[in-house]
């Protein structure tokens, strides 16, 4: 009788890349839903445009590269990139912003390097930083969170704003947008006001910014679930949030009038989304256990530096990209001691 022959091992635990990506999408969805709730339909349109663009671009590039399209699309990695990019974008950006961002992320940052597994930089963050540098004005179009918005745009008004740049009669962009809490802290500190005064503004809630605090907590929960499911490495979020916490604690303790509290930093901007969903992209992160701790810690530090002294309100994208560059070096110097090697 004849038999099939394969290399050992002959059994597998059933884990798969598509399953990992599906879990990531599932885990990010409560936070994404809260973002839609707090910041309006614009977030939904960003998600939609970015996803369609990313999947279409991936299909096209894979076809051009002469590979089979089906199996590549089936890994859902383009969708993850698209969702992470979209969640970082302001809600009222024109349609071509998520379009260009997703196109740039998938074509240039991912496939020009060889596709999934071969890209040295986080594609979503490459797309985001390109947009941030090329279209700085559009990248500030954040809406006020639910509860603070006198003029909330409905579905069709948002669509009109995004696709045709038209706002409803009698409204201008100033009326429908609001600086993010991180942005407000940065500009107001620049005018010489103290944090105590700044934080009395209505945009700040019980823990951090209104809306932002809940979205961040939802990302935290989703991230913890991913760690529990062993879909992401715990070291990266632990390193990033740990260093962000420690550095902000030191400065907050030193001068709480000019430096925001650790809690504010941890629950503002892209802190949780970055720590659990963006920095944990395994392809571009460090891969040794200790390397991942350092990698995360580096991002946390850069985020704090940019938020506090840099030119942008948030620094997760730059932190991730800078640490992407450092990942191979970190891996080299943090190799675990192999069984039987000299201690």
């Amino acid at each position: 009788m004849q038999f099939h022959t394969f290399s050992s091992p002959h059994v597998h635990n059933g884990n798969s890349v598509p399953a990992v990506m599906r879990d990531v999408l599932l885990a990010v969805s409560p936070g994404a839903a809260l973002m839609v709730y707090f910041f309006g339909w614009g977030v939904f349109f960003n998600l939609l445009i970015s996803s369609v663009t990313a999947v279409a671009a991936e299909a096209l590039v894979v076809k051009l590269r002469g590979r089979e399209v089906g199996p590549v699309l089936a890994d859902h990695s383009a969708l993850v990139t698209a969702v992470l990019l979209a969640l970082a974008l302001p809600p009222l950006v024109p349609w071509w912003v998520p379009f260009l961002g997703a196109l740039f992320a998938i074509v240039l940052a991912k496939h020009l390097y060889g596709g999934l597994g071969y890209n040295p930089f986080n594609p979503a963050m490459v797309g985001f930083v390109m947009l941030l540098i090329a279209f700085p004005k559009q990248m500030t179009l954040w809406t006020p969170p639910a509860g603070l918005d006198q003029q909330r745009l409905d579905f069709t008004e948002t669509a009109a704003c995004i696709f045709t740049h038209r706002l409803p009669e009698g409204l201008d962009y100033d009326a429908v947008t609001l600086a993010t809490p991180l942005d407000k802290v940065k500009t107001d500190l620049g005018t010489g006001r103290t944090l105590r005064e700044i934080l009395t503004a209505p945009t700040f809630g019980t823990l951090a910014g209104v809306g932002w605090e809940w979205a961040n907590l939802a990302y935290l929960l989703g991230g913890l679930w991913l760690i529990h499911r062993r879909r992401i490495a715990w070291q990266i979020p632990a390193g990033m949030l740990g260093s962000l916490f420690l550095v902000s604690l030191v400065f907050y303790g030193y001068d709480s009038d000019n430096y925001a509290s650790p809690l504010f930093h941890l629950l503002s901007g892209a802190a949780m989304l970055g720590a659990f969903f963006i920095a944990t992209d395994p392809v571009t992160a460090a891969t040794t256990p200790r390397g991942r701790l350092w990698y995360g810690a580096g991002i946390g530090l850069i985020v704090y530096v940019i938020r506090t002294w840099g030119g942008y309100p948030d620094g997760v994208a730059f932190g991730v990209l800078l640490m992407n560059m450092a990942a191979p070096t970190l891996d080299h110097y943090t190799q675990p001691r192999v069984y039987g090697a000299r201690r």
Binding site: N15, S77, L116, G117, P282, A285, T287, P336
Partner: peptide, 12 residues
């Protein structure tokens, strides 16, 4: 069929 390695580190 195998897919590209995503360096997830499960093997480690």
């Amino acid at each position: 069929p195998p897919r590209p390695c995503i360096r997830c580190g499960e093997c480690e």
